[in-house]
Write a protein that binds this DNA or RNA. Structure first.
Lengths: 333, 333
DNA sequence: TTGTAGGCGTTATCAG
DNA sequence: CTGATAACGCCTACAA
């Protein structure tokens, strides 16, 4: 592999000049620039990014920590971040935290030790205080789907409470007054906020919240089936089921059918996130749209703006969920 | 950030010695080792991985190119690769190719320019010849889900033809003799092989292949609906539909129901890949299992073995798909 | 506009 | 077992 030194020799200029044309910043006369580019072409020269990083103290890489690599939610998020960053010639280093505190901190350490110029985190188990402290370090930190007021400038988040509210309200306004709720893990802030929204909607319509119509799931398909099983065993009457995400909703749908329910007549179900597959459940899932792909783009833009000095970028820190009406909820008015 | 130099001063030893304990390879007396570790702890020293890379010509990173970051298939694949590599302290740089030739080559160049120790590719648009040539370069290349005989030692692949054969055969042995087929894009080798398997099964049972019962989809949900729409317009009778992947199968299911079919009575459908969601379609999708997560692990093990000298690893280059029987196919015998 | 030279933080090759 | 010292390939004041 040719080095900058060989290029400079072939072009008959100094190392510095070659470096200048590589980073086409400082002005170089057209003639010398031409000589240099010719030499680079002839030698098929490629800058060694590692050496560049060491000398410039910049790696052009941003670290990303997601809970899981699979799953439609994280897929959309990563796709958003990566495409935006890639366009700017930056690359992403992706690792996982599995929603466990030690794995999340380990992943963060890992990314920092890799000298990322910035890190974008979707963490759920780690505490707010830890993150606030982390932000004081040398590596800039950005948060996805999590709002911490002390570092709100570094957060890109969804109004999950509004989403939870919207979901339950849309159910109630269809005439349902006994509605069950399958929540996500309550140590996750999104899950907590969505539940808060649910309660808010209930309160607004003076519907009491019952423990027997509440179940804490794990945000996966099995969480949905387990939740519904629990409710059925409880023998408490309910005509609608609100699930804190689409995976659980689809698990619930599957289980409901196994139990002989006919949907949506016997039970209305609403989800959250609007993952692609929610269009292919039967009945098609009514849900709350979570613009996670957009939010990924925005997180990337935020680092482009703050870290890589790309000005003229408008940043939106807060996103709003919207109701997507399909077929899984019926009116009983 | 403390450097190795400061550590050496504090410990009263040389740079070289500190380096030795960092890479605990060469022998160092317990006493000096202790002094050094103490000094490192006191200074909260972390090795600069960039500098290490420059000096050692090893980045401990492996590049991964997938078609898309979202989608259940790639999610499982990446999860397999990442978890295995992460365990070994390596990190992954992920980028995308979108199944387009120029984007794929650009992505590959990108990863190579990042000095990855190896790259694992899931490419579809790029030619065999290009890949064979690529393997002659300095960066070791490994291929996922693609078999090229000239470089078979670098391939981890699935017997897609067998899978296609299994799918159609299982349909035929349930009594179906007029079966439609929605293929994947034929420039993708998996798609081609699956189709070949389908034809092989038809031939074995002396069922002619008809163009009117063939449609080339795009491996996404819409491909499935478009395919089914096409067949229905053709007005050719068929009792079963084989789809080259689960996404298309679920698109077809959704469309079929929109058209008033009752499933699986009016139409048997089988998919391919066994993505998680295939358990939540209605009816639950009968499909072919594609152990892509396992294959991801194996690809990672292959680089661990070849590049990072981890011996005692057994490599399996070929994986076999298996039939997963669920509810979307019925017997008409 | 161009060149010189020091430095980025490690590793690795020699001696000792 | 330990210590000098030269790479690694590039960037960036500072000079010219």
């Amino acid at each position: 592999m040719a080095t900058i030194y060989e290029v400079s020799k072939l072009a008959g200029v100094s190392l510095a000049t070659v470096s200048r044309v590589i980073n086409n910043n400082s002005r170089v006369s057209d003639k010398t620039r031409q000589k240099v580019t010719d030499a680079m072409a002839e030698l098929d020269y490629r800058p060694n990014s590692i050496a560049q990083s060491l000398a410039s103290n910049r790696t052009n890489s941003v670290g990303i920590l997601v809970s899981e690599l699979h799953g439609p939610f994280f897929g959309q998020m990563m796709a958003g971040i990566e495409s935006e960053l890639r366009l700017a010639g930056k690359h992403v280093i992706i690792t996982t935290g599995h929603s466990e505190e030690d794995k999340e901190t380990e992943g963060i350490e890992f990314l920092i030790s890799r000298n990322c110029d910035a890190i974008i985190l979707h963490v759920e188990a780690v505490s707010d205080d830890y993150l606030i402290e982390l932000c004081k370090g040398n590596t800039p930190v950005y948060l996805m789907s999590r709002y911490i007021k002390e570092i709100k400038e570094n957060c890109i988040s969804l109004d999950n409470e509004l989403g939870g509210y919207l979901a339950t309200k849309s159910i109630i306004t269809q005439g349902h007054s006994s509605v069950a709720y399958i929540a996500g893990p309550q140590f996750k802030s999104d899950a907590k906020c969505r539940l808060a929204g649910h309660k808010k909607a209930l309160a607004e319509y003076k519907i009491p919240f019952h423990d027997t119509l509440y179940f804490e799931g794990d945000f996966s398909e099995t969480g949905g089936s387990e939740g519904l099983e629990y409710f059925i065993k409880n023998k408490r009457h309910f005509t609608a089921l609100v699930c804190a995400n689409d995976e659980m909703a689809s698990g619930a749908i599957t289980y409901a059918r196994e139990q002989g329910f006919s949907l949506p007549q016997d039970l209305s179900i609403i989800g959250f996130d609007n993952i692609i597959f929610s269009q292919h459940t039967y009945p098609k899932l009514t849900t709350i749209d979570n613009p996670v792909n957009l939010m990924g783009h925005m997180a990337a833009k935020l680092v482009l703006k703050n870290i890589y000095q790309q000005s003229d970028i408008e940043i939106t820190h807060f996103f709003e969920p919207t109701l997507i009406v399909r077929d899984s909820v019926i009116s009983i008015l």
